[in-house]
Design a protein around this nucleic acid. Sequence first.
DNA 1: CGGCCCTCGTTCAAATTTGAATCGAGTTTC
DNA 2: GAAACTCGATTCAAATTTGAACGAGGGCCG
Lengths: 158, 158
Amino acid sequence: MGHPRWLSEEESRAWHAFLAAGALLNRRLDQQLKDEVGLSHLQYEILVRLSAEPRHEMRMTELADSLFNTKSGLTYQITQLEKAGLVQRRACTWDVRGVKAVLTDAGQEMLKRAAPGHVATVRELLIDVLTPEQLIAVADGLGEASRRMCDGNASGPR
Amino acid sequence: MGHPRWLSEEESRAWHAFLAAGALLNRRLDQQLKDEVGLSHLQYEILVRLSAEPRHEMRMTELADSLFNTKSGLTYQITQLEKAGLVQRRACTWDVRGVKAVLTDAGQEMLKRAAPGHVATVRELLIDVLTPEQLIAVADGLGEASRRMCDGNASGPR
DNA sequence: CGGCCCTCGTTCAAATTTGAATCGAGTTTC
DNA sequence: GAAACTCGATTCAAATTTGAACGAGGGCCG
């Protein structure tokens, strides 16, 4: 660690592109969803996660983890979604402490309404911009990076 | 627009990887900077932008744009950085309305102290994880995507 | 059982972000 | 020359995020 290895021209280009694309994309997606159906991107993702589940329900902590969000942040958002009638809280049967978030019919409806526009935007702004090779490189490279970050190595090996 | 083209297996993989990597990386970088020098990632980036400028100064709006942030958000952060003595506001000479943010000596000092750890983390978590081909694909692909999003096409051609 | 530690979800205050409204100063238009 | 507009930056209230602390339960060892 004594010698900071700076980023090369190419590395810097990649890093900046990654940062910029992330920031811009998040902004656009938020905007698109807000305009079209009145959801934030985070809220949309919550609905997606629930919908992907067999019984359309998930434990709070599990959901928070899958979204890379804090538990308290999720508590807040679920409360919002509950007020909007898109999600319901339900006690967990086997674990008295547990709470499950369940997608309501209105929630599914909303998702069905929101998804096409969202996917179209993701396509237009990112997916369809990439060449097939770039797409695979992104899937493999960023996939590997996020996999490593998930495996609780809070500070990494050294 | 009538037929929503869903994402293929590969496309979905790329999109999820992109989302996950962005979220995780942001979290890690924020944490690392906070722990090591007490700055948020955004604040660090502000210092970097200023430092890259010939006279270590930039107009508020220009700075906000370069960070893909709102003007009011930047106003807040510059105020924080000013309290910390890392940045100073200065009236713009030629445009009476303008305000320039200027990096102070303490700001440069801070940057010098923060950069090595930050770069090391970026390397460890992303750059060094990618193969050379993936690196170039990310730089090119995401670079192109962010370029398109910048060119004020608020909704894209259709 | 009883103590001890861990987990689940929430609550709370503080920090940050957002977007609309505002203020002051240029610029344009007629 | 003045109303009308634009631009740069700030202000403000409301929404959201963060992280520490809390309340209730599990689970395990003695």
